[in-house]
Design a protein around this nucleic acid. Sequence first.
RNA 1: GGCCCGGUCGUCUAACGGCUAGGACGCAGGAUUUUCAUUCCUGUAAUCGGGGUUCGAUUCCCCGUCGGGCUGCCA
Length: 509
Amino acid sequence: MQDFRVRFAPSPTGPLHIGGVRTALYNYLLAKKNKGKFILRIEDTDQKRFVPGAIEYIKEALEWAGIVPDEGYGYGGEYGPYRQSERTEIYRKYVNRLLDEGKAYYAFDTPEELDRLRKEYEARGETFMYDHSVRDKLNNSLNLSEKETQERLRAGVPHTVRFKIEPGRELVMHDLIRGEIKVNTSTLDDKVLMKSDGLPTYHLANIVDDRLMKISHVIRGEEWLPSLALHHLLYEAFGWEPPKFAHLPLILKPKGKGKLSKRDGELGGFPVFPLEWKNPDTGETYSGYREEGYLPQAFVNMLAMLGWNPGDEREIFTLEELIEAFDLSRVNKSGARFDPEKAKWFQQQHFQRLTDDEMLDMIYPVLSEKLGFRVEGKALKDYTEKVLQLVRERLVFPRDFWTWASYFYVAPREYNPKTVKKRWKENTGEILKEITEVLQQTEPWEARTIKENISAWITQKELSFGKVLQPLRIALTGDLKGPDLFEMMELLGKDETHKRIQKAVEVLE
RNA sequence: GGCCCGGUCGUCUAACGGCUAGGACGCAGGAUUUUCAUUCCUGUAAUCGGGGUUCGAUUCCCCGUCGGGCUGCCA
């Protein structure tokens, strides 16, 4: 029985976007479910596109989400190095093997020449493919004598190595999600395996590394499906048994056409990245789920459900529960449109499941920032804990605490003109003055007694509750929203309650 | 254009070939509440089209159509 080993192999060309995180997540879930290993490999064979900070970003994002690699770049392991730019010698060895066996060849065509050919074909309405039909007319070692080829190589003429694909074979492959996939090799081109800079392309490095790192299952995005046939042929050329493959459906834009891209976030007002990212070149900043206040468990839950379901009607999962429930056979085939609203709903569900202490830990920093000083000291913390009891069920993000509870800390500076206009009548001032007296005599100062006294007074005066309580609320909070009025008054305290009522009467009369 | 992969409510999705096609988000209405929010209830809305196979197709096959991906010395 072969060990279960999967890898996540991002390219450090920028921040990981949520599609990448989901791929990592599915790999991780499968590894954990099967008591296997989840490996992080960095695919940085394109030095031109390398972005400083990207590797650190990827690791930080995975760790924040709780998708921690067991092995790989920065995590150790016996199959390293796990960064492809450190493995060039290995790739060279394997390319030479293909070259020796006549399964690959040197190509001396320059990028300019190829570019020209592509344009020519395009002008004719055709597509240029470097394949069996044209390779014997092009500038490569298949058409050169052994001597000429060796001379050019010795002279350092820039060249690539291409994989020689034999046409006319019907390949039947298997994908764990899609089933049988058939491709005729005549439709494939002779892909470059080794670039002129001596570094391998993705295809070669990927196959060699997956083999050497004993990867049992390759779980990757659907954008790789067209390369599956090529990869199979490479395994075959090396005489290796290929791993099992699964191609995940893509995550699509919420609106419009195409797959989710980083621009969609700015347009739609939601993050497409797990963590905030500052582009080192342009200085542009892209928002992240972490900075927006999302809980990692909500983020992961939301991503898991985008393309997979447990087969029953459960929707809320912890990471552990996902490991238990996850199954590749229940991953969907079609692309999923990302829905920012549903993401918010997952956040709400997970946030509400937090304990008071967990919530408070996230709320103190928000409060400190708004208040302008660090929240510490038992009195303030105890007070905040009581405030939390009144507002907790309406919180979705930690920052919501301030929107719903600011008036517990700061007296209203202004009164919402619209609600004032609607609810503040001529005799309101008079009513509040009388209420003040009722409150003055209220002992002890508790929600229950306050409620009893005010209710009794309203009934006795034959007034409506709304006429009295709504202006009272405006006086205390500046608007017509918030938790139970009497609980609020108890927490605010007798003095503060009086001060606010008096001020409102002065300002609004 | 070529190659590959898909298509169930607006969105995410469920339904061994056999029910009034189920759930969730959203939206609308209602209940609760002094208010807002939460919560609860109700409603809303779908099998891309055409052929076939079958007693019976959302489900299997073919064609069309639409959507997506790939088509780089990117990954």
